Amino acid sequence: MVAAVLGLAVVTLGLLAGVWAVFYGVLSFLGFALASHVASVTTAGTLVTIGYLEYRHLETIERLADAHPVDRETAPELYETTTRVAAQLGVPVPTIAVSERDAPEALAVGFRPESVHLVLSLGTINALEGQAELEAVIAHELAHVRNRDAMIMTAVSLPVVLADGLGSRINRIENPGWAAIVTVPLGFLSAGVQIVGRTITARLSRVRERAADRAAAEVTGSPAALASALRRLDREIADTPTRDLRDASGVSSLSIISLEPSEPEKIMLGPEGDTEPSYWALRKRLHRLERYLFETHPPTDERLDALAALERER
């Protein structure tokens, strides 16, 4: 975690220095007086504006567009289990919402423990068997709340958010004209920062997932129950249509288990639709590389092995 935070600090400084250098170079070429001061103000204004716009966009996750709140009367078992687990972990009882999606989603969203929403999809609720598995999944998500993972990951993802916002706005410019002397280097800079930053934050996210697994196993007293729940949800993902997974991809990094398909969707070619694309082998390798670099969850098998080790210790 220390190495990841230090690495992201370096990436953030690199982004700031890169944006400043682009503006300074252009202003100096155009003969502006006090080019360094103007570049500093322009850099700060650009990144602050992008950061504000991007984090306002992230708040839409908390609006629970595909979920509806439930309470003690409409979902008594779910409410009581959540209340009990929250008390064991020492966190406020979250607002509980149920999503209609079939994809196995389970996530806690909200920057502060007092404003957290626990979202469970019907796909998750229907896939789990028994009270122990449901309790283990809820404990994992509320462990993230106790560990303030939403706040931590939001803070450390600053360079990625800024670079992504910068890149997306540059890509919207269809005919940059003379502005290309600014947009082109900024585009390359944002792409590089995104790759490095996402790689580091993904590794930090995997650490936080393992910590939440351990906390859930401790509070429920049953690592085996969490392992069983993860195994069922993993099988559920394998059986979920790729289209449904794409719909849920926006919350994949927040869910208890990655909702990304293990293999890219294959689109067959030819008149009969039976010809494999010539680039398919390369596409598969690139997909595996992308998962290796940017996957936010440890492989399920590794998580199951760690929980099995905890069970043996008990």
Rank of each mutant, 00 (worst) to 15 (best):
M1Q: 11
A3C: 02
L6E: 02
L6A: 13
A9D: 00
V11T: 08
L15V: 10
S28I: 01
S28W: 06
V38F: 14
A39E: 09
A39T: 12
S40T: 13
A44T: 15
L47D: 05
T49F: 11
I50G: 02
G51C: 04
Y52K: 09
T60D: 09
E62M: 07
E62G: 14
R63K: 12
L64F: 01
D66K: 06
A67D: 07
E73Y: 11
E77F: 02
L78W: 03
Y79M: 08
Y79V: 00
V93K: 13
A97H: 07
D102W: 12
A108C: 05
V109Q: 05
S115M: 01
S121I: 10
L122R: 15
L122C: 06
I125H: 02
E141R: 05
V145H: 06
V145P: 08
N147G: 10
N147C: 06
R148N: 05
D149A: 03
A150Y: 03
L158M: 14
P159E: 06
V160C: 12
L166H: 00
L166Q: 04
S168E: 14
E174G: 04
N175L: 12
G177M: 07
W178E: 12
I181Q: 03
V182H: 03
V182G: 04
P185C: 03
G187P: 00
G187A: 02
S190M: 08
V196Q: 01
G197A: 10
G197V: 04
I200V: 15
I200F: 01
S205L: 02
S205Y: 08
R208D: 02
A212H: 03
A227H: 08
S228N: 04
L230S: 02
R232F: 01
E236Q: 15
S252K: 10
S252L: 11
S253F: 03
S255D: 09
I256N: 00
E260R: 15
E263H: 11
G270R: 04
G273L: 02
R283K: 14
H287N: 11
H287S: 11
R288D: 07
L289I: 11
R291L: 13
Y292N: 08
Y292A: 15
L293Y: 02
F294H: 12
H297C: 06
P299V: 00
E302A: 12
L304W: 03
L310Y: 11
L310A: 15
L310C: 03
R312N: 09
E313K: 14
R314L: 15
